[in-house]
Design a protein around this nucleic acid. Structure first.
Lengths: 207, 207
DNA sequence: GATAAAATGGACCAGCAAGTCCAAAAAGAG
DNA sequence: CTCTTTTTGGACTTGCTGGTCCATTTTATC
């Protein structure tokens, strides 16, 4: 049963990407299976052939696709947080990415629609957050080892805070359409790291 | 037409609160109008009598209700950010509130479900964010005037960053179930303010 | 080229949930 | 007490959308 012709694989991919595109444009709620069919020149039997779980399975696949995109769109900067200019470059890339994306956040849209019914949806997001945070933490660790950040800073916790700021910034952007909050959060997070990371009580002087 | 008997007002309220309770418990997607009817001992004609716009209007009303709750649940601490202990108390209250709330975030649930169809939904969130940020900013301003924070800190931008951290922390909690990120974001934000706000890089551009 | 497996087309079904309607009961006004 | 307005009950309609089914065509394999 694990057979899958080249043609079949192509069709599956076409459906998946077509669905993702539609959702990115119109949101999940306004994207029916028939829309996907029409938009990808496929028939219902094809969709259910490649996604036996129907709508739910398709949506989950789209979620995975979008989750991958999120990290990919931050490369290569995300994997190279080894100097302050590099951090700044990453920050700019993140802001730019979400500014382009506009109000719609396909991943949030999909997962909040699948909601609690599908544990898989949560897993996708959780996993994304985990690796995202891990990469940021690696950067913090690098800077700490390089002596740019005080040794008392917990990389994971700092990364968690930074990540939360990003997520919140994007969430707010979904309502306001502005990236103001995203930028403020990132800038504050970076400033805090640069200041040596809360060496409790001590204000950065030299630098 | 602006007639509304005492009995009528009570019924309307019963429907609204019943709907909110159901949504808080089961999420928007799994809450049908019939569920609301059953849960509030009302009939369909009543629902459409008091909410002529049907489901959409009801959901919007629920969104407003939940938005109000968010700020109310932070009082009186939110309005009294006048000392570091007070800030800490507020921080604890926020964490506690969302820890209690658990994975489900009714407001996010409702608005992301109404999505882009209803501009009103966005407006509710935007307004909530605006006043939330304003109250935080007032606190920052107070601390700055008291000399606890450097004069070069932009209260609005600091508040924006803090707010983004909160939102992101809650968002992540919706997947992970943990308040780790929320706490990390708040703690970092407060630490940063406490450290004097150490020159937050960019020039402020307000909201 | 024959046979099996996969891919495709599209009609059809079923259920649900939003919304409509009309008639009856209750409440208010005078 | 009567007349009007509001409130209520609940059956009914309707449209949409996810999902099923089977016949047909195409592709792989030997």
């Amino acid at each position: 049963m694990r057979a899958l012709t080249r043609k079949g694989a192509a069709t599956r991919q076409r459906i998946l990407e077509g669905a993702a595109a539609l959702i990115r444009e119109n949101g999940v709620a306004d994207t029916t299976l028939d829309d996907v069919l029409a938009g990808t020149a496929t028939s219902k039997s094809q969709l259910f052939h490649y996604f036996p779980g129907g709508r739910e399975e398709l949506l989950l696949a789209v979620a995975r696709l979008e989750a991958d995109r999120v990290l990919e769109d931050q490369r290569p900067q995300l994997g190279d947080l080894t100097s302050w200019p590099a951090w700044q470059a990453w920050r700019d890339k993140v802001v730019d990415r979400y500014r382009r994306q506009g109000r719609l956040c396909p991943l949030n849209s999909v997962t909040s629609h699948l909601g609690s019914r599908t544990p898989g949806a949560r897993a996708v997001v959780t996993e994304l957050m985990r690796s995202w945070q891990a990469e940021i933490a690696a950067g913090v660790r690098h800077m700490r080892d390089a002596g740019e950040i005080g040794p008392d800073v917990d990389p994971d916790r700092a990364a968690a805070a930074l990540l939360a700021g990003i997520q919140g910034g994007v969430l707010i952007q979904m309502s306001t359409g502005e990236t103001t909050h995203l930028e403020a959060a990132l800038d504050m997070g970076l400033a805090h790291l640069r200041a040596g990371g809360a060496r409790a009580g001590k204000v950065a002087d030299g630098l």
